[in-house]
Design a protein around this nucleic acid. Structure first.
Length: 418
RNA sequence: GGAGGGGUGGCAGAGCGGUCAAAUGCAACGGACUGUAAAUCCGUCGACUUCGGUCUACGAAAGUUCAAAUCUUUCCCCCUCCA
C-alpha cells in the first residue's frame, strides 16, 4: 500500500516534504537497505552562517532531517563557514556583503544552537554531527582545486543552471566569485561522502542546482551515485514564504524571539494552512493530523492551539511551550494578564507616561506612532481604550500590583511593581 | 582607460527650482466584521510637539539662489556599452 519501500520516503510524501529527487527509486532502495540492515544512511543539510539564527523558513529541511534521524539515519549538519564567504547566488540579485570573522564565528555558534533543537547530536551511530566546510576549504590550493574539480565542470552546463541563468536573464551582474559557489557546494558533498560515507543531501528546492552540482561531481570523480532530495518552498495562502511575523523573521533561537511570540506565530496561522503546518512543523502522527485538519470554523482554533503548542515544544522545549500556551489562554480567553507576557518592572508607576511605557516595551517605535494609535483607538490599559494621549499612570491603575498594556488585539504586555 | 545611464521612504518606483515629509503600488500597523483565521471595508504610515508649529531627510560634501530631491562642482557607489 505504501508508495515506497523505505520508511523515510513514505513519511516525506505523507507529510508533504517531497518535492524532487535525483533518483527516486535508487534513493528508496538505498534507504530501504539501510533501514533493514540497521546501518544508518548518511545525509546532510547545509546552511550558510549569514545570520546568527535560523528562522521558521528554514524549518522544513530541519524537520526532514529530524525524520531522517527518526528513521534511524545519520544527519550531518554542515555550516558553510567557507561558502558564506562566497555567497550563494541562488534566488539573489546582488552580491551579498562580506561578513567579518567575528560575525561568522558568532553566526556559526547561533546555527549550531538552531540545529541542535531539531536533531540529536552525540556519538551514537545515528547521532547528528556538525561539520564546517571551512575545515576543508581553508587550506585548499587554487590551482589544485581547479585541476581536481574544475575539470569536471562544464561552463556551458553551469550557464544553464537556474541560479546563474536567471541572474543573466535579468541582466543582473554575477561575479566570478559567486559563479564558483556551486563548485564549492558540489565539493562539500563529495568531501562528506569521502569522510562520512554521506550519500544524500536534503534541502529546499532552491538548492536543486547546487545539489546536482554535487551529485554530478560524485558520479564523475568518484563514480558513485549521490542523492539529492528537496522540499517544496512552503508558502502561505497568499503565496508568500512562511516565516515572517509583523515583517520580522520568526527566529528559532530563543535569544532572538521569546517563546510566547513563537507560539503566537503558529497560533495565528491561516485556516487553510493548518493541515500543512501540522504535517510539517509537528511530530504528531498523521491520523491525528487528519482529524484536526478536518475541523471547521470555531473548532479549527483547537487545531491551531495544538499546532502552536507542538511546534513550540520541538523548538523551545515543553516547559516553554506550556508557559506560552498558558499565557495565551489567560490573555485571550480569560482576558487576564498572563505571566509570560513582555514585562516592564518599575519601582513606582506614579506619573509614568503611558506612551513612554509603550515605547519602552517595544510595542511602538515612537511617541508619534503612539499618538496615532490613540486616535485610532488602538491602545488599551487594563483592557480599556485610552483616548488621552498624554495619559499618566497612577497607583489607581494597578490591579494586583500590575498594569496590563495592550496594543491592538494581539500585543499585550505588563508593567509590574518591582 | 573611453562613452553613456543611475543612486529618492521597509521594498518597487514617480518627481527634476517654490504648492514636497515627497505621487502611486506593495509591505506594515490600527479600527469595523469575525474565531487571536481568511476575505472585505475604513483609517494610518519621518521624529518631536504645549497640536500653533519645530526639526531631520531624496548617495556624501561644498556652492548658486529669497527658495534645492530638483541647478553647479568635487567625491563615493552601482549599471550598460566600447577598449
Amino acid at each position: 500500500m505504501s508508495q515506497f519501500k523505505s520508511e523515510f520516503l513514505n513519511i516525506m510524501v505523507e507529510r508533504g516534504f517531497y518535492n524532487q529527487c535525483t533518483n527516486e527509486s535508487a534513493f528508496d532502495d538505498y534507504l530501504y537497505e539501510c533501514e533493514k540492515s540497521g546501518k544508518p544512511a548518511v545525509g546532510y543539510l547545509g546552511s550558510d552562517p549569514t545570520g546568527d539564527s535560523l528562522h521558521v523558513g528554514h524549518i522544513v529541511p530541519l524537520m526532514m532531517m529530524r525524520w531522517f534521524q527518526k528513521c534511524g539515519h545519520k544527519p550531518l549538519t554542515l555550516v558553510g563557514g567557507a561558502t558564506a564567504r562566497i555567497g550563494d547566488p541562488s534566488g539573489k540579485d546582488k552580491l551579498r556583503p562580506f561578513l567579518d570573522e567575528d560575525t561568522l564565528k558568532h553566526n556559526i555558534e547561533g546555527l549550531k544552537k538552531s540545529f541542535s533543537k531539531f536533531l540529536k547530536f552525540g556519538n551514537s551511530a545515528n547521532d547528528a554531527v556538525m561539520v564546517d566546510n571551512w575545515d576543508w576549504f581553508k587550506d585548499i590550493n587554487y590551482l589544485a582545486f581547479l585541476r581536481d574539480i574544475g575539470t569536471y565542470y562544464s561552463v556551458n552546463r553551469m550557464l544553464t543552471m537556474d541560479s546563474v541563468k536567471s541572474r543573466l536573464d535579468r541582466e543582473q551582474p554575477m561575479s566570478f566569485l559567486e559563479f564558483n559557489y556551486m563548485l564549492l557546494q558540489g565539493y562539500d558533498f563529495c568531501e562528506l561522502y569521502q569522510k562520512y560515507g554521506c550519500r544524500a543531501q536534503i534541502a529546499g528546492s532552491d538548492q536543486w542546482g547546487n545539489i546536482t552540482s554535487g551529485t554530478e561531481l560524485g558520479r564523475r570523480k568518484y563514480d558513485v551515485e549521490l542523492f539529492g532530495f528537496t522540499s517544496p518552498i512552503i508558502t502561505d495562502s497568499n503565496g508568500k514564504k512562511m516565516g515572517k511575523s509583523e515583517g520580522n523573521a520568526v527566529w528559532i533561537n530563543e535569544d532572538k524571539l521569546p517563546s510566547y511570540d513563537y507560539y503566537q506565530y503558529f497560533r495565528n496561522i491561516g485556516d487553510a494552512e493548518v493541515g500543512k503546518c501540522l504535517r510539517i512543523y509537528t511530530d504528531l502522527p498523521i491520523d491525528e493530523i487528519r482529524r484536526l485538519e478536518a475541523l471547521r470554523d470555531q473548532e479549527i482554533n483547537e487545531a491551531k492551539k495544538i499546532l502552536a503548542f507542538e511546534a513550540t515544544k520541538i523548538c523551545r522545549g515543553e516547559e516553554e511551550a506550556k508557559a506560552a500556551q498558558e499565557t495565551a489562554i489567560a490573555t485571550f480567553e480569560k482576558g487576564l494578564a498572563g505571566g509570560d507576557l513582555p514585562c516592564l518592572e518599575k519601582v513606582s508607576v506614579e506619573g509614568l507616561s503611558m506612551l513612554d511605557a509603550f515605547v519602552e516595551l517595544g510595542f511602538i517605535a515612537s511617541k508619534g506612532e503612539g499618538r496615532r494609535l490613540v486616535k485610532q483607538a488602538g491602545l488599551k490599559i487594563n483592557d480599556k481604550v485610552i483616548s488621552d494621549e498624554n495619559y499618566k499612570f497612577s497607583s489607581a491603575d494597578l490591579i494586583d500590583g500590575q498594569i496590563k498594556l495592550s496594543q491592538g488585539k494581539k500585543k499585550h504586555g505588563l508593567i509590574k511593581i518591582a
